[in-house]
């Protein structure tokens, strides 16, 4: 199954998987979780049970589904053509993730460039919001409490370094895999996960600090909203990435992947780099400027 086989010679048989019940299980899980969350958000009882139930189904379903995929992969069912499909698929998926963040960055942009200046214009000062000034960070004209914005050069700067180095260690790990140096692979993969986890630890610390000392909360006007939603969704993605890296590490430790056939590894690496780039943008526009 040489890599050159991609487009020149057609592959004779494309793997079409067996019928299976996992997808509908996943849908039911999502349904239960959505229903549960609705109840929780509206202070009705029973919501958490539904969420927990749904989440368990989801876990089970992922476990089985990915199990099948891994078995098929290790069983040599995926040739070059399948591999290329995975590459396309993952690329488009990452584009969709980019667009998800794009919406939230758009909100931040709008608040800073449009709505806060507008609310503090002469007309608005005169008619609705006396004395409101166009200063960023701003929690809006109706927000009375004092709060301290998050600075860029403490924890966030450290976190930037952490994530950047995790990108490097991940690349080292990849080299290890490609060159069949499994020890190097495992070590650097492990390091990557450690760096990611440290990042998350720092972020949790930072949130705690914001809530307890800076009086900076999700409810702190549009600054708090965009700050926590952007960094929060990013943190969520880092967590997912770290979990996926852990799965990959376990698979590496059990001898999965070949030097020329390891798309699962690469997919997670792409994802990790994407999360990295998002962080750089966050660092610049949320914390720094």
């Amino acid at each position: 199954m040489a890599q050159t086989a991609y487009s020149s010679t057609p592959q004779q048989h494309y793997h079409v998987p067996q019928p299976m019940p996992w997808p509908i299980m996943g849908s039911a899980a999502l349904f239960l979780m959505a229903l549960g969350a609705t109840f929780v958000f509206n202070d009705s009882s029973g919501g958490w049970i539904s969420i927990a139930f749904g989440f368990m189904i989801l876990l089970y379903m992922m476990f089985r589904w990915f199990g099948d995929v891994i078995r098929e992969s290790e069983g040599g069912k995926y040739g070059a053509r399948e591999d290329l499909s995975f590459r396309w698929g993952m690329s488009w998926f990452i584009l969709s993730e980019v667009m998800f963040f794009f919406g939230f960055f758009g909100a931040l942009f709008w608040a800073r460039v449009m709505s806060v200046p507008d609310l503090s214009s002469l007309l608005h000062n005169e008619m609705l919001w006396p004395g409101f000034k166009d200063l960023w960070p701003s929690a809006g004209p109706g927000f009375a409490e004092k709060f301290t914005p998050m600075g860029a050069w403490g924890v966030p700067a450290i976190n930037t370094l952490l994530l950047l180095s995790s990108g490097i260690t991940l690349t080292y790990a990849h080299w290890g895999l490609v060159n069949n140096q499994r020890g190097k692979l495992n070590l650097f993969l492990f390091l990557t996960i450690v760096l990611g986890a440290t990042f998350l630890g720092f972020q949790i610390y930072e949130y705690g600090h914001a809530y307890s000392e800076l009086n900076l909360k999700l409810t702190t006007g549009v600054y708090g909203s965009t700050f926590f939603m952007l960094t929060g969704f990013h943190g969520f993605h880092v967590s997912l990435g770290a979990i996926m890296l852990t799965v990959i590490l376990i698979r590496c430790l059990s001898g999965h992947f070949k030097s020329d056939h390891h798309f699962a590894f690469e997919a997670v690496a792409w994802y990790w780099h994407f999360v990295d780039v998002v962080w750089l943008l966050l660092f610049v526009v949320v914390y720094w400027l």
């Binding site: 909100a107 609310l119 809006g140 109706g142 549009v222 909203s225 926590f228």
Partner: peptide
Amino acid sequence: PVLAGAVTMTLADRHFGTSFFNAAGGG
């Protein structure tokens, strides 16, 4: 995904006290 973001912000404004779409909070 952009639509998903929009309704997520709506959800947050409804339940988590954010101010994406609320002028009093600068949104």
